[in-house]
Design a binder for these strands. Structure first.
Lengths: 208, 208
DNA sequence: GTGTGTGAAGTGGTTCACAGCG
DNA sequence: CGCTGTGAACCACTTCACACAC
């Protein structure tokens, strides 16, 4: 079944919200309530949830615990993904320590950096290799996803080397450039400066 | 004139690309070329650029330098925005040091943290205040935008306190929660964990 | 001939409105 | 009755296709 990107984005948010509600002990929730908490229209919530079968109770709402489990199953991974992170600067380290980044769905198997002080060491329990060895290590460890947190100038090069290994299926790019990758590689970009620029642009436009 | 969000996003990317081309000394560029480099359709590029008047030359393409200046003007700020950053953890510090974050368009005027080791000090040249003083400092310094890089559990509280000052018009949220803010406050969210979850979800779906 | 600018057509996602079930 | 589930209407953005300027 085909499922649109914005829908997946919202599913992840429903899931996060439900985690909270479970913790708070709330038993039942309506599309109305969920919508208000996440700033979505109630009809949007219902449509999203209906894609995966009738899960709510008419006249009542959604059973929090049940819905939470349901969405967990939709988002579940068939297995643990193997991830490599390239660029152990401030941002890279921030990600490593990030709580929302501890997940059963993947494991960060290798770090890469150009800094000789870091190469050969373990950082937060994960071995750091030279960026020159990306292809080899990625291939050896069968890494399927790489996270790029290097400066923009190095990002394309890093991506190319990682893809050479032939095992990489997805890239999460934090560098402020748009990468070129083959069509069969999934690419997600988190572009912090673009986000800020957009915000400032619309602020300006509201002012006027 | 109304201009859509996806268009602004692309404009920022054209701008970045053109900076490169200017540096490389390229004189002329076609919608075709730009599209290839950024993975957009050429027609998309042309439509985006045409919103702001005829800027290209038919049969030739776009004059790189001229187009770069043109988009600079579109994205320009009327004045320097005053920004506060709440949460000087790894991510906050990463942002402070981030090169793509040095801009003429804004200045980070204040930092906030709960860590007493940081409060009262200057960090990367910017004074750090107690998170308890957000309302007061934001009001005093007339801060218009706040960047939130605190843990999810604290984010809504921080946002509420900043908004109390009455000067905040926009929020850039990095915490993995969806904030509730009044309708007249612009909200941009950079949700790293959602982005990764989405990537993994679509990886799974391609596998099957 | 070549590449832009743009109305018109197409696509995909959101919202409505109401039937249907608990 | 109340709230879900969902086809249909709507809306926004993208892509096409071609006239037009260089």
């Amino acid at each position: 079944m085909k499922i649109a990107e914005p829908t997946v984005e919202r599913l992840v948010q429903y899931h996060r919200l439900l985690e909270q509600l479970v913790a708070e002990g709330q038993k039942v929730v309506s599309s109305q309530e969920m919508g208000e908490m996440l700033s979505f229209k109630a009809s949007q919530v219902r449509k999203d949830l209906s894609y995966f079968g009738e899960i709510g109770k008419r006249g009542v709402g959604y059973h929090v615990d049940r819905l939470h489990k349901h969405i967990s199953r939709i988002l579940a991974s068939p297995r643990k993904w193997s991830i490599g992170l390239v660029g152990v600067g401030k941002l890279g380290e921030a990600l490593l320590g990030y709580k929302a980044f501890q997940s059963e769905k993947f494991r960060i198997e290798a770090l890469f950096d150009v800094d000789t002080d870091k190469i050969g060491k373990d950082i937060q329990g994960i071995p750091c290799y030279s960026s020159d060895a990306i292809s080899e290590v990625v291939r050896e460890k069968k890494i399927e996803v790489i996270i790029i947190t290097v400066p923009g100038t190095a990002a394309q090069h890093v991506a190319d080397k990682a893809l050479q290994a032939g095992t990489v299926k997805g890239i999460l790019n934090f560098a402020p450039v748009s990468l070129s990758v083959p069509g069969d590689v999934l690419l997600a970009a988190v572009d912090i400066s673009v986000e800020l620029e957009k915000l400032l642009f619309f602020l300006k436009h509201k002012d006027e």
